[in-house]
Amino acid sequence: MTTLQAALSGALVGGMFAVMAAGLSLTWGMLRVINLAHFGLILVGAYLTFELATSWGIDPILTIVLTVPLMFLVGAGLQWAFDRLGVEEFASLLVSFGLLIIVMQTVSNVWSADFQRMDGDVNPYATESVSIGRFVFPAPTLIAFVFAVVIVVAADQVLRRTFAGRALRAFAEDRTVASAFGIDHRRLGMVLAGLSAASAAVAGMLFALGNAVTPSTPFEWIGMVFAVVILGGIGQVGGVLLAGVLVGTLSAVVSATWSPALSPLVLFSAIILALLFRPYGLLTPAARGAR
């Protein structure tokens, strides 16, 4: 019973990690940029939600109306710079690591290194919970899961059904031939990076809704989110939701049955195994990736 409850709650929490991972996975897979600064954007998103809700009294969920466009511009600008400076895959990892550190320290300078949490009077969702049958779910994780499903399904549909989505997939597979069919990689790349950053704003909001946040929180996300990206298959947005649920469930079950301290152990062992044997995702045969 408690294990089942833990598993279900874990699955919902996995939804939030799926939102965090979606943008990272897409920019990695499609643009060949490993953007560690994505975690910085999520952090800023969380703090902006906190600030807007606390100081201005805006409903925390509605803060994304402001943060999403802002982050879109930041993400697009960053991609423009990466493209301009010719930062390729591996260098992008280092450059964005530097940027992440800058963001984390700046956040710390602005909001102090202490935990920040929205009070109950500005964040009505924190104390709510929903009972379904015998199970109880805190509202923030349910909201996060709903957002995860909406974002992942929307992204998946865009990738499948629109010209831009097809263009992105084509571009990820073969840049040269894609350009012969009129695909302008600069513009498309900026749009994708912008959308990815926008999703970081949403992820930040979702995190702030149910958790206290400190400037060093991104270090707690990195492992979980990379696990989701790699298990889901780099660049595969559908895989991200699946992997998020899987990783969330696994970690919650391990925490509930053994010890919370053990869950990173299981998780990171899973990452290492995945990197060793399925570096291109659980759903992708190793041979194809190796091409």
């Binding site: 930062v87 260098a91 450059v95 530097g98 940027l99 550190i101 320290q105 700046t106 710390s108």
Partner: peptide
């Protein structure tokens, strides 16, 4: 003190490029 890591991050990001 609050600028320590910012300087460090900036050195990394700029130098790699």
């Amino acid at each position: 003190e609050g600028w320590n890591l910012i300087v460090l991050g900036a050195i990394l990001a700029v130098l790699v490029v």
